[in-house]
């Protein structure tokens, strides 16, 4: 099985034919990609992939929860060959339902083992880290908490804004629960809810970042790239917000993984494997590093966007995608706290 997969990649490598599409060496192949990644990032990746391999990619963009629901509804008849998700828990959910096919070992070898599925059913593509974002005219950096747990202190009452329904928030909850236990995590969430107050549960990290920049609140927790994206959009001068990192190995300092998988129902598995090989390989990772994505490439040979603090200089907690799983623990705690 593994050998066959490897051979398929070897057979395809370097030529524009995709192997099993017929006698013609130039038969153009098409795969279908369900993408929950930001559309411009995906478009840039797909263009580079098609240029390199001649394989056309039809892209369907939607939210990761909707796409997961669709793949489950479509079952064995999904038109999708590949699912590219912003957060790993959705891939895990599909794998739990037996809807994914194994990724080629050579592709998995592109990125650190801990950033992909333990059973090799999906591959990690890029990473983001959770950070504090604050308004410098309302707080100075010496006042910032060093741990995410400190945000439960009463001193932050009315100064905090949170986006609890964002999937990005789940790994933080899960990580706190792992290091402090469920009861402590629940108490922490309830304190966060009280500190945020009624009007300060926002729908997403984009809103949270822009609210802090506008000075309606003092600080919040986001994934680092929302800060850089907003900065790229409005310009450095117009963004009144700054980033800060939690103390090394703090439970709130986690790495989120964006990954991709091949559907078991795919009829173009060889071409789909090539797409994953490209995504996690140097060529795809360089596209990620160059654009306005601001995510960290996982391939050790590709440097991140120079505006970012290199991942090797950061010391997030050891919380892994495997520990996040489908995120069910986090969801339960968030529901119990009445945050979602």
């Amino acid at each position: 099985m593994l050998l066959a997969g490897g051979l398929a990649v070897a057979a395809c490598g370097g030529t524009t034919s995709a192997g099993n599409s017929g006698p013609s060496g130039h038969a153009s192949q098409t795969i279908t990609l369900y993408s929950a990644q930001h559309a411009q990032t995906t478009a840039a990746l797909v263009a580079a992939f098609t240029k390199q391999t001649g394989i056309t990619v039809r892209v369907d963009n939607d939210g990761e929860d909707q796409l997961t629901a669709r793949i489950e509804l479509e079952g064995g008849r999904s038109p999708a060959d590949v699912f590219y998700s912003e957060n790993s828990n959705w891939l895990q959910q599909l794998d739990d339902k037996g809807l994914l096919a194994p990724v080629d070992p050579s592709t998995l070898a592109h990125v650190p083992k801990v950033d992909s599925a333990t059973n090799g059913q999906w591959v990690g593509v890029s990473a983001r880290v959770s950070v504090l974002v604050f308004n410098p005219s309302r707080l100075n950096s010496s006042q910032l908490p060093s741990s995410v747990l400190d945000l439960a202190e009463p001193q932050w009452k009315g100064k905090l804004e949170i986006a609890p329904s964002e999937t990005d928030f789940w790994p933080i909850v899960s990580s706190v629960a792992r290091s402090k236990g469920d009861a402590a995590a629940l108490a922490w969430l309830e304190a966060l809810k009280a500190n945020a107050g009624s009007g300060d549960e926002v729908p997403d990290n984009e809103t949270l970042t822009s609210d802090i920049s506008q000075g309606t609140t003092d600080l919040g927790i986001i994934n680092h790239y929302y800060f850089y994206r907003l900065q790229a959009e409005v310009g450095k001068g117009s963004l009144h917000a700054r980033l800060a990192y939690f103390a090394p190995h703090d439970p709130g300092f986690v790495e989120d993984i964006s990954g991709a998988a091949i559907l078991r129902s795919s009829k173009h598995k060889a071409a789909a494997q090539r797409f994953l090989e490209f995504l996690s390989g140097e060529a795809g990772q360089s596209v990620l590093a160059a654009g306005d994505s601001f995510e960290y490439p996982l391939h050790p040979g590709v440097a991140a966007n120079p505006v970012l603090t290199p991942l090797s200089h950061l010391q997030p907690s050891s919380f892994t995608p495997a520990e996040l799983g489908t995120g069910l623990d986090a969801k339960k705690l968030l529901q119990e706290a009445g945050l979602i």
């Binding site: 411009q40 990032t41 963009n61 038109p79 994206r229 907003l230 306005d292």
Partner: peptide
């Protein structure tokens, strides 16, 4: 798949800030 409407394009760019 592959067809963009005005609303989906708006969404795609807006969600990318």
């Amino acid at each position: 798949i592959g067809v963009q409407t005005l609303a989906t394009q708006f969404w795609a760019y807006q969600s990318e800030v």
